[in-house]
Design a protein around this nucleic acid. Structure first.
Length: 471
DNA sequence: TAAAGAATAT
DNA sequence: AATATTCTTT
């Protein structure tokens, strides 16, 4: 019990077997700095040639082992994979439409209909990390694959809860507003705005028109799916973690009217969204490095469960200036020895690859990834399918975020069924295609605007990356 | 055989 | 979840 000189690792030869308690080697903590090096190495090598040994060499960090790197790499790849899966999905969809927002060209309804044929998103190549040209942009510097930007939609993930949306449609709040409005979604105040009502409307009034219903529901699903996905997913870490709330506003495409050019509008940025969750005792950290503290957000934990921890998100500026870590002053530049954690480091900062905690769906996502060969579309597939096929399940109210459950009359449900039968070809087992498309559709819609603006990194700015730290 | 990678384990 | 360790494959 006395010592711990393993600072250096292996020199303690004596008490190897008898004093087991003292011998454990510290875990490597992938501090931001360390990770940065790692990423740099990976980028330098190229994603395909980046193997542990090489990476290790390039990193040139003492005490780091190949195994350590391998382990980290494994995780890193997982992260990249998720990113690209989403990105490719979006890209594919967009591409399918010639890169334009389908809604701009066709009426919303017709659009959806004709859209179906495209469905098989499977057609879209499977996930293949296009990391080919990593390396330069700031994003790249951070290890984000270049496609990252694909992620355009942000949902107010306020409290992670969206991902579950189990049953509580009220959790969603699609607001038509944009700049800042307070974020508290999560409250259950379904009240607000736009989108939903609109959809509700569609469905209700268009009872006679299947397509309309279809459209409505599809959209709704899409939206919710997107929200979910975004909320629960992995990706844009930073933003998610930050709780950046982007609003998706929908302009009520009143029934047949052509949809206003922006069906969905993404508003970026916005940050301040402090989740109300009661847990937020700590507001700011002394971190600023390029970023102002206010940018820090509490990450909201759906994790509230544990309660004990709150996380803070550290905005890292891709420019490489990131140094800060809430408390670790990793020290400067180059050769700092690996920061080793005293074993029980539960409170230390961990590097996160931007995986926002999401419950449950994640697993599905990943699995589907394999099933659909990476093409998958995140949790949405699953959700959608469930929704369609299991409407009755109270736990799967993905439908219409704000629509009150009861608004869907059995009749409507029936319609949905029909639609389901008609519209989507054999979904057996894999609802993928349709969901994928819907989802994609939404994304594309959303994305379209962005594209026009040629939004890229600047927009998200530094949020890109996701190195978040949890305390 | 060494090392990469996936699968598990902690 | 983050790392480690073990198991497989190359």
């Amino acid at each position: 019990m006395h010592s711990d000189e393993e600072d250096d690792g292996e020199e303690n030869d004596f008490q190897e077997g008898d004093e087991p308690s003292a011998a454990k080697k510290p875990r490597v903590v992938w501090s931001i700095e360390l990770h940065r090096k790692f990423v740099a190495a990976v980028n330098q090598l190229g994603i395909d040639k980046a193997v542990p040994k090489r990476i290790l060499e390039l990193m040139n960090v003492e005490k780091l082992t190949r195994e350590n790197v391998a382990s980290h790499l494994q995780k890193y790849r997982l992260y990249l994979k998720r990113l690209s899966a989403v990105a490719s999905q979006q890209a594919s969809i967009v591409a399918a439409f010639g890169g334009r927002d389908p809604f701009l060209h066709m009426g919303a309804f017709e659009g959806l209909q004709s859209y179906q044929p495209f469905a098989p998103c499977a057609a879209l190549s499977s996930f293949i990390p296009h990391h080919g040209s990593l390396g330069r942009t700031t994003a790249a510097a951070f290890g984000v694959p270049e496609l990252a930007p694909a992620i355009t939609v942000q949902a107010a993930a306020s409290n992670g809860m969206i991902s579950h949306c189990a049953g509580d449609a009220s959790k969603f709040q699609l607001s038509g507003i944009q700049e800042n409005q307070q974020p508290n979604l999560g409250q259950g105040s379904a009240t607000s705005l736009g989108l939903p009502q609109l959809q509700q409307k569609w469905i209700q009034q268009e009872t006679g028109d299947l397509s309309a219903v279809f459209s409505g529901s599809a959209l709704a699903n899409t939206l919710s799916g997107a929200l979910q996905r975004v909320a629960s997913s992995p990706l844009p870490p930073q933003e998610l973690l930050e709780g950046v709330q982007t609003k998706v506003s929908a302009q009520p495409p009143i029934t047949m009217a052509s949809v206003s050019s922006e069906l969905v509008e993404r508003t970026v940025g916005v940050s301040a969204n402090l989740q109300d969750s009661g847990i937020s005792p700590q507001g700011t950290l002394p971190i600023n490095d390029g970023f102002t503290a206010d940018k820090l957000q509490l990450q909201d934990p759906f994790d509230s469960n544990g309660g004990t921890n709150f996380s803070v998100n550290m905005p890292v500026c891709p420019s490489g200036s990131l140094t800060a870590s809430s408390n670790a002053k990793g020290g400067a530049s180059s050769c700092s020895p690996v920061l080793l954690a005293p074993d029980t480091g539960r409170h230390s900062n961990y590097l996160q690859f931007g995986v926002a905690g999401n419950s449950g769906h994640d697993m599905n996502d990943i699995k589907q990834d394999h099933l659909h060969q990476g093409l998958s579309t995140g949790g949405f597939n699953h959700d959608f399918g469930t929704c369609m096929t299991e409407q009755t399940d109270p736990n799967v109210p993905y439908l219409m975020p704000q629509m009150k459950p009861n608004t869907l009359s059995s009749e409507d449900k029936l319609k949905q069924r029909n639609i389901y039968d008609l519209g989507i070809p054999k979904l057996h087992g894999g609802f993928s295609s349709s969901s994928c498309n819907f989802d994609g559709l939404l994304n594309s819609m959303i994305k379209a605007e962005k594209d026009d603006l040629s939004f890229t990194d600047s927009d998200l700015g530094c949020d890109f990356f996701p190195l978040g730290a949890c305390i």
